[in-house]
Structure formats: C-alpha cells, structure tokens
Design a binder for these strands. Sequence first.
DNA 1: TTTAAATATCTAAATATTTCGATGTTTTTG
DNA 2: CAAAAACATCGAAATATTTAGATATTTAAA
Lengths: 95, 95
Amino acid sequence: MITSLSIKQVEKISKALGDPYRLKIMKIVSNSESCVQCCDVSAEFNLAQSTMSHHIKQLIDADLLIADKDGRNLKFVVNKEVCTAYADYINSLVL
Amino acid sequence: MITSLSIKQVEKISKALGDPYRLKIMKIVSNSESCVQCCDVSAEFNLAQSTMSHHIKQLIDADLLIADKDGRNLKFVVNKEVCTAYADYINSLVL
DNA sequence: TTTAAATATCTAAATATTTCGATGTTTTTG
DNA sequence: CAAAAACATCGAAATATTTAGATATTTAAA
C-alpha cells in the first residue's frame, strides 16, 4: 500500500525532524531490533522526563513513530510507511 | 558522486522544510524547467519582500537550493544531490 | 547619470518552541 | 492498599523563528 502525504503532513514531519534530540530518538528506535520504550530512550539523554515526553509526542503526532501503550510503558517503532512516503516526497522534488 | 549528510545537515534541512512557504518554494523551483528568480517566486505569495528573502536564504543555507547571482537577479535550482542524500537518510531509518 | 528594479540587511514586534519543575494518572509491585 | 514506576500534562521562563517596514546595495534602463 502506498501512502501519499499531504503538504501539511510533510511540513509536520519536517518540523518533527528539525531537532537534534528527535533525530537521535528516530535513530535509536530505527537501530533497535524490537520495540523501544520512553525510559530506554530517556536514558540516552540529559533531559527532563517531561521534555523527553514532549519530543516523543511530536514524533508520534507526526506519524513518524507508531506507539502502543503496554501497561505503564509506551512502546514504539518507526512508521516505515510514513518514512518511506516522506522520502518519496523529497525525491519527487528531484525530477 | 554520493553525498553523505552529517546529522547537523539533516537537522538544518529538516528545519528548512518545516515551513509551508518554504515547501511551496521548493515545489515551484522543482516544477520549473529552468532557473527561477526571487521575484518569480514572490509573485506567488502574499509576503513582504524581506520575508521572502529570508525564506529563500534558509533554503540556500540548507543547501536545498543552489543560487547564482545573475545581474540584479538571484537565480536558483534544486540541489538534487542534497535532496537525494536527504531522502537516503530518511530511508535509512527504515531497515 | 538619475531612476527604477531586484535583492539583502537591520531592527523590532509577534508568535512559536524548548525546557524544566511540579503535579496528575495509570499500572505494577510489595 | 500504599508505594513506586512510567508516562502525561500544566504553567512559566528562556530562546528561537517569523514577519514587516525601513533602509542599503547592486545593477540595469531611460
């Protein structure tokens, strides 16, 4: 199934990726075999818990991460479909 | 030649693309056959000239556009190499 | 050579984002 | 059931971005 993004979605995704912490979160989640949790990611940063929560929320809101509540944990994986669709959009700028 | 972007460059590019006007500028430049000038782009927007100048500067600074002074005009084209490298980075998040 | 056109730069206001601490909610554990 | 763990939300300060108007610069045209 091919996802096509609206311009608003492209903007939101770009904005979500325009931050060093959020880029690093994406890389951590991408590099991990299984699901990642907030507390796993938080351990890698020197940021307040509320700040981490905020960053992760932005990635989820932009559909870059797919999250799933598991008890008191929040587990997430990269949304491959959306990442691919975003890359496709960028590539479409190069004709 | 394959360009590989630093994480700082990826951040800067994402930030540059995280704005509706700048996304539209990229699309206009991408869709045009030949070089585009500031005044061509400006005509499509309802923004002050200084504001347009600022947006275009950000795209150039992020290396998304290649600019070339031509008399009193500034002509530019999409930087295909950087766009492709950016799309590759995004795709690398999907393993 | 004065004038106009295209763009850049500066300043400042308005708005948005980032960050933290405090506190709230939900779920697990003792 | 009380305490702790994981995360969310709120409020506020610090910082960054967006925008416009005024002005400067550079080049082309009259």
